[in-house]
Design a protein around this nucleic acid. Structure first.
Lengths: 236, 236
DNA sequence: TTTTCTCCTTGACTTAAATCACAGCAATCC
DNA sequence: GGATTGCTGTGATTTAAGTCAAGGAGAAAA
C-alpha cells in the first residue's frame, strides 16, 4: 500500500493528464490533486475482485489492465482493456456498490484513486467535472453500442478487423511499413474478448497473415496494415 | 409540434415519475418542470434520425420507442427499447452532438424534452441530479456489460431466455398461469435485436413452445414461465 | 544448454446457425 | 368480404464456427 497524495507526485501533477479533470483551472487542479491517492500494482496483481465493495474511482496513470468476469461455463470474458487516462469504478460508486467485474494488472501499473466521498465533493464543487464525467460515460456507451452492433450483426472477420484497428489506435505506432501494435493480451485473451474459440482466432489471424494484412512479429507484437483492415471492417 | 411546459401537464408534474429527478425537492421539481417541453409522436414517427444534431435530452413519458441503426448489409440493428422513465440523447449532448442511432415510436408516445443548455442549467444548479444521471449511465453500462457477455459467450438459447426475461420484467404482467408479456417488437425485430436470423428465432421459439416454457397467444403477446426461463438463462 | 511448461497453431470432425425456398396466416386496403 | 401485402413458420441445404486431438514454438527454470 503506497498511497501518496498527488501533490507528492514525482512527475508533478499526474491528474493534469486525466481528461476527466481537463476543465479544471490550475488552482482547482491542485485542490483536487490533494484529494487523490496513489497506488502501484505489479503485473498480474488484482486491482478489484468481482463482488468487492468499490470504494474509489480508479484512474489509470501508467500501465494497462483488463476488466473481466468468469462466465458460468468457467471461461474468462474480458469486458474492457484500460490504459493511461481511462478510469473505472464509477458505476459502482453511485449505485450497486459491488464490483460486477474483476480488474487485473497486465503490466506494472500506477493508478490514481478518488474515494466516493471525495469524488462527490469534487462533483459538487465543480459541476463542469460532473458534465465531463457524463460526457465520458456517454462516449463509453457509444463505444459499447458499436461493439454491440459488430457482435450482433457483423461477421467475425469484421469483428477481428475492428478489434485490430482499436488496438492499433490505442497501442500502435505508425511507420511507413505499417502500424506496429503492442498487444496487451494473449491470443487466448483476444479470443475471450471477442467471445470466440481460441482456435478460431488463430485460423483467422493466419488467414490475415496469408493475405499480408497483418504480420505476427512475436506473440505480443503485430505489424498491421490499417488501410486494408479498414476495408475489411467496412469503414472505407 | 405541441410543446408545452410540464407545468401545464394535465396529470400534474409528469417529471415526478422520472427517476432522474427523484432527488429534487418539490420546490426544485417545479422549477425544473418549467424548463421541460413536451412533444407527442404517433406510432411509426421518427423521434431522431441517425446523424441528426441532438438538441435535447429526451425522457419517455408514455409509450415505447426503439433505437436502431442500419448495418452496412442493410439490416436494422435494434440497440435499445425505451419505455416510461427511460431517457436517451445524453451522450450526444456533451460530445459528438450527432445522433449515432435513429429512434422511432413503436406506439403513440409522449416525451419530455430538456434542451442541452437547460439540462446544463439543471446540472449546475443541482449536483445531486448530475450524480443521479451518472448513476443511471452507470446502470446502463452495467446492463450493456451483461448483454455484451451474453452475446460474446453464451449460447443463443441463453440469450433468448435472457431477452424474454427482460421483456417479462419490463412489459409483463404476472398471473398464476405465468407472465403475460406484451411484446414491443415483431419476431423480425427480436431477431434483429439478438442479431440472429429471423428463421432461427422462430425455430427456437417453437422449441420453447414445445417444452411449454412459452406460449404464443398472438404475435404480440406471449405467456411465459419465468422460473423455467431463469433455469435456462443460468440464473437459478 | 537442456528441460519443462505454457501458449499457440493446424488438421479432422461435429454442431449450430445462416441461407434458400416455399407455404400459411394476419393485417390492411379497397 | 375478398384480395393484396407483409410477416411468420418449417424443411432442406450450405456454411461457419466449435470441439477434439496432436504437434510445435517460446519463455522460464534447472
Amino acid at each position: 500500500m503506497d498511497s501518496t497524495s498527488c501533490l507528492d507526485c514525482p512527475q508533478g501533477l499526474c491528474i493534469h493528464r486525466v481528461p476527466l479533470f481537463s476543465s479544471l483551472s490550475r488552482e482547482n487542479l491542485v485542490r483536487v490533486a490533494g484529494l487523490i491517492q496513489h497506488k502501484s500494482f505489479e503485473k498480474g496483481a488484482p486491482l478489484v475482485a468481482e463482488g468487492d465493495r468499490v470504494e474509489a474511482l480508479t484512474i489509470i496513470n501508467k500501465g494497462r489492465v483488463k476488466a473481466y468476469r468468469y462466465t458460468p461455463e468457467g471461461r474468462e470474458q474480458i469486458l474492457y482493456l484500460f490504459s493511461q487516462g481511462d478510469f473505472f469504478g464509477e458505476q459502482h460508486l453511485f449505485g450497486d456498490y459491488r464490483a460486477t467485474y474483476s480488474v487485473e494488472a497486465l503490466e506494472n501499473c500506477r493508478v490514481c484513486l478518488l474515494t466516493k466521498s471525495r469524488l462527490e465533493q469534487v462533483l459538487f464543487a465543480h459541476p463542469r467535472v460532473a458534465i465531463t464525467l457524463i460526457a465520458e460515460l456517454g462516449k463509453r456507451i457509444s463505444q459499447m453500442e458499436n461493439t454491440f452492433q459488430s457482435i450482433g450483426v457483423r461477421s467475425l472477420d469484421v469483428r477481428i478487423a475492428t478489434l485490430l484497428l482499436d488496438f492499433a489506435a490505442k497501442y500502435g505506432e505508425k511507420t511507413p511499413e505499417g502500424t506496429y501494435v503492442s498487444l496487451p493480451i494473449s491470443r487466448e485473451g483476444m479470443a475471450n474478448y471477442l467471445g470466440v474459440a481460441r482456435e478460431t482466432l488463430s485460423r483467422k489471424l493466419s488467414k490475415l497473415e496469408n493475405e499480408s494484412i497483418v504480420r505476427s512479429l512475436d506473440l505480443k507484437t503485430l505489424l498491421v496494415k490499417e488501410s486494408r483492415l479498414r476495408d475489411l471492417a467496412g469503414l472505407s
